[in-house]
């Protein structure tokens, strides 16, 4: 008898783990589709004043993405290409393509609270972490992501608050190894685009730094429209800069 209960219990655990994995997968799909095009505005609050940037982003799968800055005028035309874990940047002012070396990867991207690493390693949420449901309230699920033993990620854990109606998160909290909060993402204004749901307002903030955050407003989102392969070549950096 007890054996049967144990078996049921174990299989339930498995089910739950599978369920968690399923949720994370769907969440991840919502963020990228097969391919995704976004037009967005980024606002950065830094030392009491706000800076605004606009850009267009094209990405396909987890390994290819292309970003082009459209505003402010002084940065217009700067393009980024990340491909298979490498990252290049083209700056029209200096007419150069620069490969971002590994030592610069954890630099803040364009002065925001997002690092180059965040952009390049988007995929890792599914591959590098073991998800576990820690709370369930109706359609709201809290999932804890613990890094797999040898996953090359710095976070001690990530806690996501997901609405399973839309498979979008409302808040992701990143912790260090000792379990202390380091930074969090907040997502709001979920919108349905085709078969996908996506929050159109994001906010990134460090947990212990006041008066400094980065906000992202999605102005346009298109899923699974065939993005030309042209965007994911080094030649695109210059070509689509204009």
């Amino acid at each position: 008898m007890s054996k049967i209960i144990l078996i049921i219990f174990i299989s339930m655990l498995n089910l739950m783990a599978d369920e968690a994995r399923e949720i994370i997968k769907k969440l991840d799909e919502n963020f990228r589709g097969k391919s995704i095009y976004m037009k967005l505005e980024m606002k950065i609050l830094f030392m009491g004043h706000e800076r605004s940037m606009k850009m267009q982003s094209y990405s396909e799968g987890t390994k290819k993405s292309f970003v082009k800055i459209t505003y402010p005028p002084k940065d217009k035309g700067i393009t980024f290409l990340s491909l298979d874990g490498q990252m290049w940047q083209y700056v029209p002012k200096i007419e150069r393509i620069i490969k971002i070396p590994s030592s610069m990867m954890l630099q803040k991207w364009m002065g925001s609270d997002i690092t180059n690493d965040d952009i390049v390693k988007q995929s890792s949420i599914v591959e590098d972490y073991e998800p576990k449901i820690i709370k369930k309230e109706g359609s709201l699920v809290t999932i804890e992501l613990l890094p797999k033993e040898n996953a090359p990620v710095v976070w001690g854990k990530i806690v996501l608050n997901i609405d399973t109606k839309s498979y979008t998160s409302s808040k992701d909290i990143f912790y260090d190894e000792e379990g202390k909060e380091v930074r969090y993402f907040i997502y709001e204004n979920v919108k349905k685009v085709g078969n996908y749901y996506i929050p159109t307002y994001w906010r990134v903030q460090s947990s212990d730094v006041e008066g400094r955050y980065t906000e992202i407003f999605l102005e346009e989102v298109e899923y699974d429209t065939k993005i030309s392969e042209e965007y994911f070549r080094k030649s695109a950096l210059k070509r689509f800069s204009k």
Binding site: I44, F46, M47, H49, R51, K74, D75, I78, Q89, V91, K93, I94, R96, I98, K108, M110, G111
Partner: peptide, 16 residues
């Protein structure tokens, strides 16, 4: 030589 970095307000800076 190309320089890229960030300006004092955090914005992007590049020059030759």
């Amino acid at each position: 030589v190309a320089f890229i970095g960030s300006a004092s307000d955090g914005s992007f800076a590049a020059d030759i």
